[in-house]
Amino acid sequence: METATPDDAPPANLLVVTGAADWPADCAARLSRLPVAASSLAYLNPQQAPRAHELRSRLRVITSSSPAEARAFSSYLGSHRRVRVVGSPQTDHLPVHRPEPDTVLVLTSVTYPDETGGAAPGTELLLACAERLAAAGAHVVVGMHPREDPSLWDRYEISDVPSVQAAGRAEAAIGIPGTVFPLIVAAGVPVVGCVDPALTVPDYLLDVCSSTIDDAALAVGAVGTAELPGEDVRYDAIGPVGGSADRLLDAWERAARPHPQRR
């Protein structure tokens, strides 16, 4: 994959944005001759972004992973247009679920914000939950967010594969609700959400949780009784499984086609 800035971007047929914050809005303004596709690849809260109006008239297509994500993304964009639900490419190759006894996957978020993005509250609670689980005999495997500080978790096994693939080993997962939660459920692993009062996420990320806890003393019991949500909840949050990358690329390819000239 090549990276570029607006100053050195190669010739292109389509600009794909994943949100309407300052950076994508600035890029769209600089690349004003390109058609735009908006694709939700990570969760966004269902409140209209201040600069969403700058993008709406240029959007050729809007895509999301699931029906629930589509509803949140529409609210974020302030759009009433149809959203094409394509599924998540990360579910195209799910691991075979072969849980290892007493193995729990801990799903981190980001403790400290930096110039590449924000952070989610709840790390202290999740660390305390991991300690309780380990003390109760669980083998803790940490699925690390790419921007998380690994030194916070180095007392445990840190997975050397992405969290979705690591889920194949786990009987259950626990973490701060985020984009990966529906993907872990898609892999057949129930999840428990650690919720800090300051955490704000779309409801569908909580709906896939077997339970949510705000006290580390509840972690062992919640993980031990964790169950997958019902099929209707799963589809609403996960979307179609299999062929998602092809559907997404097809949507982008169609959006990039020149519109016929009007006579």
Results as ranks from 00 to 15, higher is better:
L126S: 01
V233H: 01
P229F: 03
V195G: 03
A187H: 00
T5Y: 06
Y43F: 13
D102H: 11
V185Y: 00
A25E: 09
S32V: 13
I213L: 12
S163I: 04
Q47P: 04
H80T: 10
S66C: 09
V61T: 06
D215P: 05
E2H: 08
A186C: 10
A136F: 00
V110M: 09
A29S: 10
R60H: 14
G118V: 07
L31N: 04
G242C: 14
H145T: 03
A21I: 10
A42K: 11
S64N: 09
P190T: 02
V195Y: 02
P260R: 15
V208L: 11
L248A: 05
D196A: 05
Q261D: 08
P113E: 13
Y43A: 03
R56H: 08
A173R: 01
L14E: 04
G122R: 02
T116V: 07
D203V: 04
L107S: 03
W252R: 07
L55T: 00
L206P: 03
E54G: 04
E231A: 14
D203K: 05
D203A: 09
F181S: 03
G19M: 09
P99T: 05
G243Y: 04
A37G: 08
G242K: 05
M1C: 11
V195C: 06
A29W: 14
R56F: 13
A12K: 15
D154F: 09
P101E: 15
Q90E: 15
D26K: 15
A138M: 07
L59P: 04
S74R: 05
A9R: 05
C209L: 06
N13G: 15
A37S: 13
S159H: 07
R234Q: 15
S211A: 13
S74E: 08
G242D: 11
E231Y: 11
W252Y: 12
L31P: 01
P6C: 15
T18V: 09
L152Y: 02
R262P: 04
T225W: 07
C194H: 00
A25Q: 06
A72M: 04
W23R: 10
R234T: 09
A128F: 04
L126P: 01
R262K: 13
Q90Y: 12
L125R: 09
C209R: 00
F73P: 00
L126N: 01
P10M: 07
A217V: 05
W153K: 00
V191W: 01
G143K: 01
H93I: 12
T91A: 09
Y204F: 14
G122N: 03
D215A: 13
Q165K: 12
Q48E: 12
Y43C: 08
L55Y: 02
W252K: 09
A170P: 03
S40C: 12
L249S: 10
P6N: 15
R51L: 11
T225Q: 14
A21G: 08
P89F: 02
V185K: 00
V241E: 10
L228C: 07
H53F: 14
S32C: 15
A245V: 06
I238N: 01
P190D: 04
L14C: 08
V208E: 02
G87P: 02
G230K: 10
A38Q: 06
A237Q: 05
S64T: 06
G168Q: 09
A167Y: 01
D207Y: 03
W23T: 11
I158K: 01
L31I: 14
A138S: 14
S88T: 11
